[in-house]
Write a protein that binds this DNA or RNA. Sequence first.
DNA 1: AATGAATGAGGCTTCATTCAT
DNA 2: TATGAATGAAGCCTCATTCAT
Lengths: 203, 203, 203, 203
Amino acid sequence: MNTKQTILENALQFFASYGYDGASMSLIARETQITKAGIYSYFKNKEDLYIAVLDHLIAFHKEYWIKKKQRLKSASNEKRLKDSFIFSIQTAVKEPALIAFWQMAQISPPRSLEQVVTEKISASRNFLLAYFEEMFEAGKAAGEIETPHSSLTLAHSFYCLIEGASLKHVNANFPDYEATLLTIFELFWDGLEAREADEWKIV
Amino acid sequence: MNTKQTILENALQFFASYGYDGASMSLIARETQITKAGIYSYFKNKEDLYIAVLDHLIAFHKEYWIKKKQRLKSASNEKRLKDSFIFSIQTAVKEPALIAFWQMAQISPPRSLEQVVTEKISASRNFLLAYFEEMFEAGKAAGEIETPHSSLTLAHSFYCLIEGASLKHVNANFPDYEATLLTIFELFWDGLEAREADEWKIV
Amino acid sequence: MNTKQTILENALQFFASYGYDGASMSLIARETQITKAGIYSYFKNKEDLYIAVLDHLIAFHKEYWIKKKQRLKSASNEKRLKDSFIFSIQTAVKEPALIAFWQMAQISPPRSLEQVVTEKISASRNFLLAYFEEMFEAGKAAGEIETPHSSLTLAHSFYCLIEGASLKHVNANFPDYEATLLTIFELFWDGLEAREADEWKIV
Amino acid sequence: MNTKQTILENALQFFASYGYDGASMSLIARETQITKAGIYSYFKNKEDLYIAVLDHLIAFHKEYWIKKKQRLKSASNEKRLKDSFIFSIQTAVKEPALIAFWQMAQISPPRSLEQVVTEKISASRNFLLAYFEEMFEAGKAAGEIETPHSSLTLAHSFYCLIEGASLKHVNANFPDYEATLLTIFELFWDGLEAREADEWKIV
DNA sequence: AATGAATGAGGCTTCATTCAT
DNA sequence: TATGAATGAAGCCTCATTCAT
């Protein structure tokens, strides 16, 4: 029905599966049941199409998180964090292509769009980090969380946990993944209590 | 003499940065200071080159982990796990291309090699998972770890933690990443203690 | 509009002159005043183009022979055979490339198409042989031909005669070739009378 | 043992099967169990190799016919012609590649060697034609043959018959080919008797 | 909005050939 | 005599893109 939307969806799938260069306009066109030339009625060129997909994805997520924030305004911070975690995993389950596209965009963005893509992703990540940081800060203020780590550090850790867990689902079908993923969160949460900083060095 | 090695290294870099389709033989050849045709003295075709890179990578890791296992045979399990975690992060720091290539291979393997690549990766993952599981099992036996979760589940969680943390470094240069990464491990470790299983559902 | 036709004609010429491998797509494209890529709007690939040429040729011939059969339904069998012979030679004179292509297709078909080509040619040959056999049979029934040889054997002989004579024209410009070719037919026809089978052995 | 000879034989096979352009040096080398570069120890280049094969073939045949001529000096002309026919067919049976190569060389000689090849073949053909003509002339003188056709015309016809019959064997495996081929010769020979020249026209 | 035909650039691969060994 | 590595040219094909319709 809505051709543009269909193109976007198919483009997302193929960019996710085959990478920017591996996903040819022909392929996307064929799947959309339109001609290659037809795509150019909607998008100036391949780069334009890619950016459109990316923007779509970012907008969709941003909107979601904003609504979430509103709705859970008064919930406990544990609940809010747990909720964030679960939503992310659910996305990985229901729309693995979203995660794949997102990761691909970070690891190997289209050569010619490297800068633009990196900036957009960075902005989106910062938006989410800020939301997480806020929750941790609130959690500390409310006494829910006791830890010597800064809220920013915790936000980064949490973000990383989410990405790792999402990927885990996309990459590997392992047995009993629900248990595993929830285990991750639990361990994380349970670890959120005072403890002396360690002195290990990575480099 | 070591032209082959040089080709492999450059191929790894470009496959990691641009994806399989984005990394052209010309590019790899130019970087190696050889002609495109020259590459074909060493590798039957692009797929062959890709598989060679992948095999190289897998062999290198496998060898590392086996040595590690030998050397740390008598260390505490916390130390052994911590060590595994740190080594992975160090790899991400020193050779981000390895991680990038590895992730790309999972998320979007070359279309024509999908099955082969998936199998190789799966085998490699299982090898590591077994190693981790063994450590958790030993940790429980030694009383270091108290948790209702199965060792396999813990292994999966740990593996996921490592991949997440590695990617985190590759994708984003964030401030004070050492602290963040170690925080993740700490929280994980501290959480390893008895607690009632939760009843959340993801789907 | 008739670009496809032009491609087919040029392809026939070049396949005939240079063989499948010697006839490059560039060459065919240049002659057709189109880009190499342009050919791919009409033919999937080189093999496809080759097969199209072959099919065209076969279809053209089949159609011709069928019409001929209709038109000469009531003529004497000598006339019908003479006519077949002359038509074949005329083709060799007017369109030597047809004969060249046809022979090449039999002697050294494209490596990758060996089976398909052989089958198509075989079918076409059998069609013609059946037509010839029919004429010889009719000739015998009508008392025009007296010979101990089977009609099938005669058909094969006649077919062979025609191919030999056609090639003769294509390969060598010899003096007074009309006389020579007709001599061949005459000798053949005059020989069609009773005679005891010979006992020579070839191998 | 004799590497050069082996190369020549394999080259003949592949030139015959795949044509000049289709037969790559790699292919010939591989079959000879030598390196591509190794061939260049014996032949200056591909053209040189091709010409060597052709010369070899021509010399072999010439030698054969000269010997034959000597040996059958006193036989009847029917026997001598029959013998020539049978030898040719036997060659087609035992060494189809020779015939294939020979036809290919006529129909589509290597582009760059067109002139040289054509001249060599022409010379070889003329040599044989002269031999045939001589036999027909002698046959007439001896009263074995009665026909209004010139000996040269008969020689051409006979040559054509032989090529047609040889090809027939190479191209198509048909049932009872011995009978067919001999039928051809018989019909030809039986036709060699006086008869009024016909007035058909080919063009 | 959508198409079919066409294009120039570039991708992967093979080719004939050379050269140092 | 023979090799392995290397090369420049060329071959087939696909790509992103355009344009007239």
